[in-house]
Amino acid sequence: MTAAVWAVLAILAFAGIVVALGASRLHRLSHRVGSFPCQARAGGNPSVAFTLGIAHYAVGRIEWYRCWSLSPRAARTWLRDRLVVTGRVPLDHAGQSDQYLVRCRYDGADFELSMSAAAYAGLASWLEAAPPGRRDLVL
């Protein structure tokens, strides 16, 4: 075989490994207890596209991971006592009958999340469930 053929095979093998690692990461994240699909974008600009992601409840915080990434770390982390839901809008008009646009504020920065109605119910319950002064003990 020529060097060009070996180079093409090496590139294909590398691409296959990257795809397998990404699929494995996405599978692990989406099958963790307390995980739910959740898209995010900066608030105030509806022309900006949502970024696909998976959110996960941790002790006293929500960790949000990008879907199309190989990073083992969360792209965003929101602590429960600093996260405020400022509003929600059902997305029925966009043909998404079970989706909500959830407007949030964290440390003075506004952002928006798009999630299912069940995920929103879980988020609202999680935010309201912690007793004052004991927020780090509730999952």
Rank of each mutant, 00 (worst) to 15 (best):
Y100R: 14
W126Q: 11
S35M: 06
R134C: 11
V59F: 12
R88P: 00
L91Q: 15
W6T: 09
C67D: 11
Q99R: 12
R73K: 14
V33P: 00
I62F: 06
A20L: 12
W78L: 11
T51M: 12
I17Y: 11
W6H: 11
R103V: 00
G43L: 01
S125Y: 02
A118G: 09
R25F: 07
Q39H: 11
E63C: 14
S97G: 06
Q99M: 14
W126K: 10
R25W: 06
L12E: 07
V138H: 10
P72I: 10
L29T: 05
A117E: 13
P131H: 08
Q96A: 14
N45E: 14
P46C: 09
V19W: 02
I62T: 05
S69V: 06
L139Y: 14
F111C: 06
N45L: 08
A15N: 04
L52V: 03
L12Y: 01
D107F: 05
A74L: 08
V18H: 02
D110S: 15
S30Y: 01
P131E: 12
Y100F: 15
G22I: 05
T77S: 14
L101H: 03
L21T: 03
G133N: 07
A7M: 07
D98G: 00
R25T: 06
G60W: 09
I62A: 01
C67E: 13
A23H: 10
L83I: 06
I62R: 00
S69G: 04
G16P: 01
T86N: 03
A129Y: 00
L127P: 02
Y106N: 09
A118P: 00
S116C: 04
A74D: 08
G122Y: 01
R82Y: 09
L83M: 06
G43K: 05
V85E: 03
G16F: 02
L91H: 02
L52T: 04
L26K: 12
V102L: 02
N45C: 10
N45D: 15
R41A: 08
A20D: 02
L139I: 10
L12D: 01
A130Y: 04
P132H: 04
E63Q: 15
R88L: 08
Y106H: 15
A15M: 11
C38A: 12
A3T: 14
Y100I: 01
R105K: 09
F111S: 07
S24A: 14
Q96L: 14
A13Y: 01
G22F: 03
A20H: 07
S30V: 03
M1L: 12
G122H: 06
A4L: 13
H56F: 11
H27F: 14
T77E: 10
M1Y: 07
R73Y: 12
D98C: 06
Y65N: 11
A119E: 04
R28D: 12
G60V: 05
H56I: 04
L91E: 14
A129L: 07
G53E: 09
A42F: 00
L21W: 10
Y57E: 07
R103A: 13
Y65L: 05
S114F: 01
E112S: 10
S69N: 07
C38R: 02
V102P: 03
L21K: 13
V59K: 13
S71I: 03
T77K: 07
A4N: 10
N45Y: 09
G87L: 03
L79M: 10
P46R: 10
L29V: 06
A121E: 13
A94Y: 08
P90V: 08
P46A: 08
L139Q: 08
L127I: 02
